[in-house]
Design a protein around this nucleic acid. Structure first.
Lengths: 209, 209
DNA sequence: CAAAATTTTGACCGGTTGGACAAACGTTAG
DNA sequence: CTAACGTTTGTCCAACCGGTCAAAATTTTG
């Protein structure tokens, strides 16, 4: 059983939010070990001891961030539903994930950083909550395949490929922009990506017979 | 003009290789700032000052690693050639990239780490050498499209999607294995991935009419 | 072998970092 | 007003980290 959430004053609520926002900025740019409490404190506009009054350890900030983000991050997958046309459902899942890469790149990078380093802090979550969710949705996708609504493939790897292609635009943003160059690397790149991914996932690369 | 490579004794050659191998292990697991010279020295079986005799600064090790790896890493793309059937060429490019994710996951993670943090050390390379190579190959792919050999899409985003889906199996390996579970997360996962990716890139998800 | 050159090591240093602590400051309720 | 409580800060510390240095050990060369 979890301990109940500690009572917090108004100031505590606000300052904790301020710190978490600053920490997201710093952690996502430098990784956990690459970030210092001083950097976070400065980004939050307060002194280091003051920050440590709200979060007693650096790890506590990271952990709190992580827990909150996981929910937001998996929301699009949770919404993937059995009602409605399968291809439409998948298309809008891809679109939503791409929008998240565009609108929440820091969150994406924070997770990428954590996973890259072996997910030392959230491995249990991956093996538990995440696996269950993916298994559940894989079952839904499988039923679509059995019904002949989409082509038969591996649902798990399908989900991986959606994650990979969409999050790429947040995690590898520097590379994407460098390769596209000044003219094509502007704001329009997400629309180009959306068009491309839709075509890829629906039709593949074979020329239309 | 570059300075010519310094003369090196046999011991220097060997020890430098030993250090680079150890550094690859440590850097890819912890990132640049998350790794210490002591860790690398221990992994290489020598003392810190001894290591610093061969590489005078931590950054020098990282830089040397990076330069060497970039060539290996881009080799499959360089091989993408105009001769031969376009769909076959693309299929074997995807297969080669996936093999690299399987056989050189540390190299993949080292790059991912660097890019994630904004590529502070290799941005010029991305904007120069990498962009040129991708532009060149994009032109090849475009000619295939004009010839009606593959469907018309954005060649740049096509390349991104191949990078993203294949490297995912190295960079997000922990997550992949956690989600697949003990039974399906074994060695066979790369063959499953290969099968899935081939189908995705060739045919997409629409059920066969 | 012996001198010269190379390699290895222990000790050390200055700067940084996560975190502790007590004192000072501000706020709120009686 | 004032006592209690919540907030903020300056100061300090021990551990860590990148890197230096001189001396010792080893290898190479004549």
């Amino acid at each position: 059983m979890e301990g109940s959430a500690p009572r917090r004053t108004r100031i505590q609520q606000e300052k904790r939010e301020l710190i978490l926002e600053a920490a997201l900025e710093v952690f996502s740019a430098n990784g956990f070990r690459g970030s210092t409490i001083d950097q976070i404190a400065e980004a939050a506009g307060m002194s280091k001891p003051n920050l440590l009054y709200y979060f007693r350890r650096k790890e506590d900030i990271h952990e709190t961030l992580m827990q909150r983000l996981l929910d937001t991050w998996l929301a699009p997958l949770r919404e993937l539903d059995d009602i409605g046309d399968p291809l439409t459902e998948l298309r809008s899942y891809i679109r939503r994930k791409l929008e998240m890469a565009r609108d929440f790149p820091r969150e994406s990078r924070l997770f990428a950083n954590e996973i890259l380093q072996g997910a030392p802090r959230i491995k249990p979550l991956l093996e538990g909550e995440l696996k269950s969710l993916v298994d559940e949705k894989a079952a839904v996708i499988k039923s679509w395949m059995r019904a002949g609504k989409i082509a038969r493939t591996d649902p798990w790897h399908l989900i991986f490929s959606i994650w990979a292609t969409t999050q790429h635009y947040a995690d590898f943003d520097v590379q994407v922009r460098a390769v596209l160059g000044a003219d094509r690397g502007g704001d329009g790149r997400f629309e180009d990506a959306a068009r491309f991914l839709e075509q890829l996932f629906l039709d593949g690369l074979k020329p239309k017979g």
